[in-house]
């Protein structure tokens, strides 16, 4: 069983590696050129930032409604260093991740010191994201609502690529890395402590776990990952503004892919990102078939909202729980 699962993972990885060569190379000339590769990039990228949510929200049970605060921090830190101070974006990248970790540490220390849990923690993260959005909108260093443009200069040493495939492989590498981190959480003592905190914080404390320290650590880790994603986003699209960087949409997206795929599972965010992307595309295509529909985008989001409700109601451990039998007892509620 175990080896068959390993084989499946290996096969998936090989497929992901070969995919852009099949659909991005000669076939692409016949078909919509970069469409397939960009779709792959989006799924892998959302799976990566979704995994950063999942590590805090799924594995440690600290549901966040404002995870975008880390994403935006990363995007702005690297872009400001690059555009305003002339840093090489590759060098700015680790600093962006460090800034994300710092923000995660700060929010965690403040909130968990005050004893915020559950919905209150979720809402305070949302408020932090709002504070950051308003600041990004008003202070000169971010150029306010105008946003920041990164000058197009597609050279690999400049963290810009002429072809979509390079970004695809970068997202793939990050996604695999994040899955590796999630896997490590299922094997390590740190991960076991997080699981204990998620299941019952008082019991975890009684067992001698330093609940506060572990929660702060996991939020810093999650913040670093999400901020790293922010830099990739900025370098791929060469533009960020306060709404892209700190808007509520990305927070919801990260939460959604994890919840749908399976919060607290290794492959949940990836499965969720894939399924939601396909559901979204199909909904839009179907919507466009209906005469008189000009903008089918909201339809996809309506379906997402409905899926979220159904998942919480009927499948709280997400889609992956339908296929993988897990050892732990079903969660209450």
């Amino acid at each position: 069983m175990r080896s068959r699962f390993g084989l499946l993972c290996a096969a998936g990885l090989v497929a992901a590696l070969v995919y852009p060569l099949l659909f991005g190379g000669p076939v692409a000339l016949l078909w919509r050129s970069n469409y397939a590769v960009n779709t792959g990039f989006l799924i892998l990228f959302v799976a990566f930032i979704g995994q950063s949510w999942n590590i805090a929200g799924g594995f440690a049970g600290q549901t966040s409604f404002g995870h975008v605060v880390f994403f935006g921090t990363g995007a702005y830190v690297s872009t400001i260093l690059h555009v305003t101070y002339g840093w090489n974006p590759w060098l700015a990248w680790p600093l962006a991740a460090a800034a994300g970790a710092l923000v995660g540490w700060m929010i965690a220390v403040l909130s968990f010191r005050a004893g915020l849990k559950g919905s209150y923690f979720a809402l305070i993260t949302l408020a932090f994201a709002e504070v950051f959005r308003i600041l990004a909108n008003s202070v000169p260093i971010t150029r306010g609502g105008l946003g920041m443009l990164i000058k197009a200069d597609p050279r690999p040493e400049n963290f810009q690529f002429r072809d979509a495939i390079s970004f695809y492989y970068l997202a793939l590498a990050l996604c695999v890395l994040s899955i590796g981190i999630a896997w490590w959480l299922t094997r390590s003592r740190f991960g076991a402590r997080l699981a204990a905190i998620r299941e019952n914080e008082d019991a975890a404390m009684a067992l001698g776990i330093d609940v506060f320290r572990e929660k702060v650590r996991v939020l810093a880790l999650s913040g670093a990952m999400c901020a790293a994603g922010g830099t990739v986003y900025a370098q791929k699209y060469l533009y960020i503004d306060p709404v892209i960087a700190f808007g509520v949409d990305k927070s919801v997206e990260m939460l959604l892919v994890s919840m749908v795929g399976g919060a607290g599972t290794i492959f949940g965010p990836l499965v969720g990102a894939g399924v939601l992307h396909i559901v979204g595309e199909v909904t839009r295509d179907l919507g466009n078939l209906v005469p008189g529909v000009k903008n089918a985008q909201p339809l996809a989001l309506i379906v997402y909202g409905a899926i979220l409700i159904l998942i919480v109601r009927y499948l709280p451990d997400g889609l992956t729980s339908m296929f993988v039998r897990r050892g732990r007892a079903p969660r209450n509620g």
């Binding site: 559950g118 309506i302 409700i309």
Partner: peptide, 13 residues
């Protein structure tokens, strides 16, 4: 958190 997620779903819809 579950009810928060449900009402989040409602607000998205």
């Amino acid at each position: 958190e579950n009810i928060l997620l449900i009402t989040l779903g409602l607000s998205i819809i």
